[in-house]
């Protein structure tokens, strides 16, 4: 890396949710990993703690020099990951090798009817959050969006890029592109998949909140709810996508409580869940405490990783598609 404009102001360090977590202090920090270390010929020996980043982009947003810190960290990961052997990452790669997805598939309601729209729930949506996928699919149907859920769609490759498995990610992309070729429209629930499909594949994928924002919807939930604005929705896709989530929910009449922590990372992204489960857990735990203290029923989000990680803390976490009805359903 050359020609960087870092002035050592420390804004990225203050913004980093990993560094401020008691279980995340082993992380060398975004400035070391994304700015300082790439300048060293010894950068390949930075060690596995360089991977303790959720790729939440908070550092990048805080940087007054506009440095692409997350991109630089990802580039370094590609360089060092082959030499690192985090058990969770190895397991994830093994899963992809053997059945094409990052986690075990639990979803069974495949729809392969030759529709023009493909709903692409992602690995978590087809695995531990299969119930969410069923609900989301029903919502799309109720909105008049007939769609397939293809058993041939595999992992988008985004988790593999986070652990530096570039060649394996490329293979998945080829497999998915063959499947996607049969469809005119792709709808996703995971901001990570959305980003991967859009920016890496070059496919115009739409995230669920972007589909829902123009629809007439009604709240399905009672009481006050807080938001978990997913990092990869707000800072990965765009802040307008995160605003779309707010509009969908307020438009449907959900009673939303806005909290300052709502766009802070839950600890579930960037390979953290698989690579450093204790840190991912600690970040989720501390965040769940804040939500509980706010006295809300639970949290609504639009990212399977957030839903999974926060959900383990006994908090009620809903995907946006689980919080609203189509107006015409009743």
């Amino acid at each position: 890396m050359t020609d960087h404009g870092c002035i050592k102001c420390g804004s990225c360090l203050r913004a980093c949710p990993v560094l401020s977590d008691p279980n995340g202090t082993g992380f060398p920090g975004p400035r070391t990993v994304g700015v300082d270390v790439p300048r060293f010929p010894e950068r390949g020996r930075i060690g596995e703690r360089a991977l303790m980043c959720t790729m939440c982009h908070a550092c990048e947003w805080a940087c007054p020099s506009g440095l692409e810190i997350t991109g630089a960290m990802l580039q370094l990961r590609a360089e060092v990951s082959p030499g690192l052997q985090l058990p969770g990452h190895l397991r994830m790669r093994e899963n992809v090798r053997s059945f094409g997805r990052a986690v075990r598939t639990e979803f069974t309601g495949w729809r392969e009817e030759g529709n023009r729209t493909l709903y692409f729930p992602g690995c978590i949506g087809l695995g531990p959050l299969a119930a969410m996928t069923t609900t989301a699919s029903s919502l799309l149907t109720a909105l008049g969006i007939e769609h397939d859920i293809s058993s041939r769609a595999v992992c988008c490759g985004s988790p593999l890029l986070k652990v530096g498995a570039l060649a394996e990610a490329k293979v998945l992309q080829h497999r998915n592109m063959e499947t996607l070729a049969a469809y005119e429209r792709v709808i996703t629930s995971c901001p990570g998949c959305t980003y991967q499909l859009r920016e890496v594949y070059g496919v115009r994928a739409e995230h669920m909140v972007e589909v829902l924002k123009a629809k007439d919807l009604r709240s399905k939930v009672r009481g006050k709810w807080a938001l978990q604005l997913p990092c990869h929705l707000k800072r990965g896709l765009s802040p307008w996508s995160a605003e779309a989530l707010v509009h969908v929910l307020t438009g449907a009449g959900v009673d939303i409580v806005r909290l300052p922590v709502e766009d802070r990372c839950c600890g579930g992204g960037g390979g953290m869940l698989a690579g450093f489960p204790a840190t991912a857990r600690s970040m989720a735990h501390n965040k769940a405490d804040t939500y509980r203290a706010a006295g809300v029923e639970g949290v609504i989000t639009a990212c399977p990783f957030c839903a999974l990680n926060l959900g383990r803390e006994g908090l009620r976490v809903l995907d946006v598609s689980e919080a609203v009805h189509a107006e015409k359903m009743r």
């Binding site: 060398p28 270390v37 060293f40 010894e42 950068r43 020996r45 930075i46 060690g47």
Partner: peptide, 9 residues
């Protein structure tokens, strides 16, 4: 030596 760039140097 690995584990961190500081140690490697």
């Amino acid at each position: 030596a690995g584990g961190s760039v500081a140690l490697a140097r």
